[in-house]
Design a protein around this nucleic acid. Structure first.
Lengths: 245, 245
DNA sequence: CCAAAAGTGTTTCTTCTACACCCATGG
DNA sequence: CCATGGGTGTAGAAGAAACACTTTTGG
């Protein structure tokens, strides 16, 4: 056991990855498997988020960053702390108790949940130490602990946030087409968007910059590539106080 | 010491109260005072939020509710968990350490912060066990721990949220005038709003219901009273997917 | 030449904004 | 009768929504 860790406080990470080819918003999960040492009966066989206990000398943000790095090797990804989960019964289902007993941690653990936004293609799953796998957020497998709840809350927050902040571009490559942005919005929100209206709207933004480049290697008309400029966005940005209740 | 409590996890409550007469959005704070037993030197003299450790058998929401009740006697007020604060140095200023030593709690405490929305007039400060006082959110006194940061984050969240959800009415009496709503928005957001446009907008909402009543006891033209109907709101409500980035 | 996706315009409707004066009431 | 805040209307601009066909490219 690691003496640096605070044994009743953890950080759990919902890693959202967008698969631009499959047009699918995915969540990265690890398998949880346990069988009885005596009877070989399968006791636990499901999936969970990655998380880890907070260390005594680190901030919550640092814990989240550390967890992501261990899971994916990635650093500097967009992250957001979105909620703490601390119900006394959150880890008390039968299989969770078995698991906890086996791993030796505190069943009254409060977790601070974060989500990350990145691209599935940036994660190398081949050599992943946790055998992590992507699952579409709309087709989650059986989940341990209260992790389904955590994922759904993260997803809810993401849906709201992507309407008012340009976080969508964290899920896309640096160079993207307008239709890719539209596909992504449609994936996240589960809605259909009119292509003409959407294009006009996006192209008119000063911080959506047309590049001198087109797609290559596609077997159809190659689309114009664009980039998002955070600098321009920050300059242009002005708080609007539109009350829409 | 209370054996029920989890000694490194607390809930802190930012209690927002709107003073409809002063048109002021306030925060309820308690005084923190400590002098040296030997020299009578004042060691700590500032204000803090109320908070308390989470009990082993309660949810975070229950802790928040309990804290509010002890502070104000009120139950059933709107509350929102908005962020966890857990930096290792959040309680390590000189005076905070003195205080912690005196009170005997863990300096590596993580706090789950909530805010409440209510009316100042609903709180009886005369007989308050903590000698709590209201301070305008724009004129906070010196604050202990990281509580200034917590309040400002709560305020930021409130500003965003009041634009998209009808939580504003939690800060107003059941019967209110249109101008009172406008004053409240102006207080919270720190902006000026055109009265004619605002009136039109609000009165057109189906869930803003004109009552058969006018103000009484005012020395001017008494204003029409309205109420907010949550039932109608919930029926009328439809998610809009307006992308405004 | 064909399949596939990129790209393009116009009209209608709603909503936001700007703006200044009269009115009703209690004292 | 006066001070105070309550209440009202219109026109212009901007943005959202609805809607279907042509163009370009690689194979």
């Amino acid at each position: 056991m690691n003496s640096k860790k605070i044994d009743n406080i953890s950080v759990d990470c919902v890693v959202f990855g967008y698969d631009i080819n499959a047009k699918s918003l995915n969540v990265l999960l690890i398998k949880r498997y346990l069988e009885s040492k005596t009877t070989q009966e399968v006791l636990v066989n499901d999936h969970v988020l990655t998380g880890y206990h907070v260390h005594k000398e680190e901030t919550l943000d640092q814990t989240a960053t550390r967890v992501l790095k261990e899971l994916t090797g990635l650093t500097d990804q967009y992250k957001k702390q979105f909620k703490a989960f601390g119900n006394p019964d959150r880890l008390t289902s039968k299989k969770d108790l078995l698991w906890i007993e086996n791993e030796g941690f505190n069943s009254r653990t409060i977790t601070i949940a974060y989500y990350f936004l990145l691209k599935t293609e940036d994660v190398d799953l081949e050599n992943n130490p946790y055998s992590a796998t992507w699952f579409p957020v709309t087709a989650l497998p059986e989940l341990g602990f209260d992790h389904e709840k955590i994922i759904l809350e993260a997803y809810k927050d993401l849906k709201v946030k992507c309407l008012s902040e340009p976080i969508i571009f964290k899920l896309l490559p640096d160079k993207f087409t307008i239709n890719e942005v539209q596909d992504l919005y449609q994936s996240i929100l589960g809605i259909e968007i009119d292509n003409r209206n959407f294009r006009r709207k996006l192209i008119n933004k000063k911080y959506i910059i047309a590049l001198d480049e087109k797609q290559v290697g596609v077997s159809k008309k190659p689309a114009q590539l664009y980039m998002f400029s955070k600098d321009v966005y920050d300059k242009v940005f002005e708080k609007n106080y539109l009350i829409s209740i």
